[in-house]
Amino acid sequence: MRNTSGSIATTGETETMAAVVQERYGTEPEAVLRTARLARPRVGPGQVLVRVCASSVDRGTWHMMAGLPYAVRPVSGMRRPKLPNPGRNVAGVVEAVGPGVTGFAPGDEVYGTAPAAFAAYAVARPDRIAPKPAGLTFEQAATVPVSALTALQAVRDKGRVREGRQVLITGAAGGVGTFTVQLAHAFGAQVTAVASTPKLDFVRALGADRVIDYTREDFLAGPRRYDTVIDIAGNRSLRDLRRALTPRGTLVITGGETDGPWLGGTDRQLRAQLLSPFTPQHLGTFISSEHADGLRDLTSLIDAGTLSPAVDHVYPLTETAAAVRHLLDGRVMGKLALTLTGD
Rank of each mutant, 00 (worst) to 15 (best):
G342D: 01
Q269W: 15
E30R: 10
D227E: 08
R243S: 09
G77E: 02
T10K: 15
T285P: 07
H326Y: 08
A323I: 09
E163Y: 15
L301D: 10
V211Y: 02
H282P: 00
D108S: 10
L283I: 07
A205N: 01
V97N: 00
G46K: 06
V90T: 13
A272I: 05
K132W: 03
F118P: 10
Y214I: 01
L317E: 02
A292K: 07
V203F: 05
M1Y: 14
V176C: 12
N85S: 11
N235S: 12
Q269H: 11
P145E: 05
A116W: 03
A66K: 02
A172M: 06
T180P: 02
D240R: 06
R59K: 12
K132E: 03
T258D: 05
D213T: 08
I212N: 05
A310Q: 12
G207P: 02
S276A: 04
G46T: 08
Y121D: 09
I169Q: 08
G265C: 00
S289P: 11
L301G: 03
S55C: 01
T341G: 06
L263E: 14
V144C: 00
L38Y: 11
R24G: 13
V48W: 08
L183T: 01
K82G: 00
M65N: 07
L238E: 07
R51L: 03
V72K: 11
M78I: 14
